[in-house]
């Protein structure tokens, strides 16, 4: 047994102060899981919207409910964050933005960008900005 085996192990992820790059990584996972959980609901809505006129109107009505609107905003954040972080990861695959400073700046861009896009989409969903959907 070498001396290095006696070093203390401290891997409580909740107690380590994570750099922003790690936060983007874990948010990428969380947003992915969120979308997986919402997927059955989306297939249900797709089915209903294509079944007949009454079903389509029902979807339009459902989408006006506050609960569905909040879920829609959550989905928008998850999708936006997942896509932006995904683009960043793919660029990293090609060694673009791999330097620590750039990687951190890009990570902040993902965090802030996702919130900004979600805010715009949320204002569309909650009717602050006009959005055309007709039953």
């Amino acid at each position: 047994m070498s001396a290095t085996d006696n070093r203390p192990v401290f891997l409580n992820l909740l107690r380590i102060r994570q750099p922003v790059t790690a936060v983007v990584s874990i948010f990428h996972r969380i947003s992915g899981v969120v979308m997986i959980l919402l997927l059955p609901g989306l297939v249900y809505l797709l089915n209903l919207s294509l079944s007949n006129q009454a079903g389509f109107s029902q979807v339009a009505t459902l989408l006006t409910s506050p609960t569905l609107k909040i879920l829609a905003v959550l989905f928008c954040w998850a999708l936006t964050h997942h896509v932006l972080a995904g683009i960043r990861f793919m660029l990293l695959d090609f060694d673009v933005g791999i330097e620590r400073d750039t990687a951190r700046k890009a990570a902040w861009l993902v965090q802030v960008g996702a919130l900004v896009v979600t805010a715009v989409l949320a204002s569309l969903i909650f009717g602050v900005l006009p959005l055309g959907a007709q039953s």
């Binding site: 294509l50 389509f56 055309g132 007709q134």
Partner: peptide, 11 residues
């Protein structure tokens, strides 16, 4: 985007 979706156009 920006379109008014109806059952007929969607279907």
């Amino acid at each position: 985007g920006g379109q008014t979706i109806t059952f007929d156009t969607w279907r």
